[in-house]
């Protein structure tokens, strides 16, 4: 009788565990931040373009990922006001009895992307942040089940989520180790992509006491909507070099790519995104 190879067996077990875990009653969040409520608010019409932030924090034990999506959400909500929409998903372990944000599982991300795609209008813009541990060609998805589920999100799936939002203008940020390896999957004519690292380097700032990942921390501190994307990127790189120097880390080498339709954004203020 053929014995399943260990890797296949492990994957099958993980898949089974994942299926069981997603059925936890609060997997889609609770109260005003339940996934269905977030998606309903995201679909509400606005005068002019809507700016929708999809924040996906896929790591569970480092609070940095949760911190990443929350600080960007707060800044963008202040920036865009009535035109702002957001969908936040997080796998962070909870402090209290009830989970406030929905889990950042692949299933919930898929639901969110489908809903945003269905509700979009041509003038709408998307800002997407995936923040997680990662490896070459994949992001890690970890969440408390009961038990702990660990799965991977392959670059192909990530690419399908990003491309589902096309042709709307989409600014994608990925803060994870080796995130540059995900670029080929997510690039598109209307996609502005930023990654915390190239394909060959880890990025820093995902420890259990970190408040944000180094990349998002540097990016957020450099945000100035009156400056251009080139200026934002230069300031972000400079800050990152400073952080990395403290740890004597040679550098994650963050990457940026402008889609063919967005090349002109390089020298335009962020407010023109």
């Amino acid at each position: 009788m053929a014995v399943p190879p260990p890797r296949a067996l492990a994957l099958a077990l993980l898949a089974a565990a994942g299926c069981a875990a997603i059925q936890r009653p609060d997997a889609r969040g609770t109260g005003e931040t339940a996934l269905e409520r977030q998606l309903a608010r995201a679909a509400e019409p606005a005068q002019g373009p809507r700016y929708t932030f999809l924040g996906v924090a896929m790591g569970d034990r480092s609070p940095a990922f949760y911190g990443d999506i929350r600080i960007l959400d707060r800044i963008l909500s202040h920036r865009y006001g009535a035109a702002y929409r957001s969908v936040l998903l997080s796998n962070r372990e909870q402090w209290d009895q009830l989970r406030d944000l929905p889990l950042a599982t692949s299933e919930n991300v898929q639901l969110a992307v489908e809903a945003l795609r269905a509700a979009r209008r041509p003038e709408d813009r998307f800002i997407v942040l995936f923040t997680a541990h990662g490896n070459r060609g994949e992001l890690s998805e970890e969440y408390p089940a009961p038990g702990r589920v660990r799965r991977s999100v392959p670059s192909a799936l990530l690419g399908r989520w990003v491309k589902a939002l096309a042709p709307n203008r989409t600014w994608v940020m990925i803060s994870s180790c080796y995130s540059g390896s995900l670029l080929p999957a997510i690039e598109g004519p209307a996609v502005l992509a930023m990654t915390a690292a190239d394909a060959d380097h880890p990025s820093l700032g995902c420890g259990t006491l970190d408040r944000s990942t180094f990349f998002v921390g540097a990016l957020v501190r450099s945000l100035d909507f009156d400056q251009s994307f080139d200026e934002l990127w230069a300031a972000t790189e400079e800050r990152l070099r400073g952080y990395e120097a403290r740890y004597r880390y040679p550098g994650a080498n963050p990457q940026i790519r402008f889609g063919a339709d967005l090349w002109g954004l390089r020298v335009k203020p962020l407010s023109r995104f």
């Binding site: 609070p63 911190g67 929350r70 600080i71 372990e93 402090w95 408040r211």
Partner: peptide, 19 residues
């Protein structure tokens, strides 16, 4: 910071500091 289940230290998100 707060203390989470099991006693681990959990940072309050920066977004919540002045919220």
């Amino acid at each position: 910071y707060k203390l989470g289940a099991g006693g681990q230290v959990v940072p309050v998100a920066d977004a919540d500091l002045l919220a």
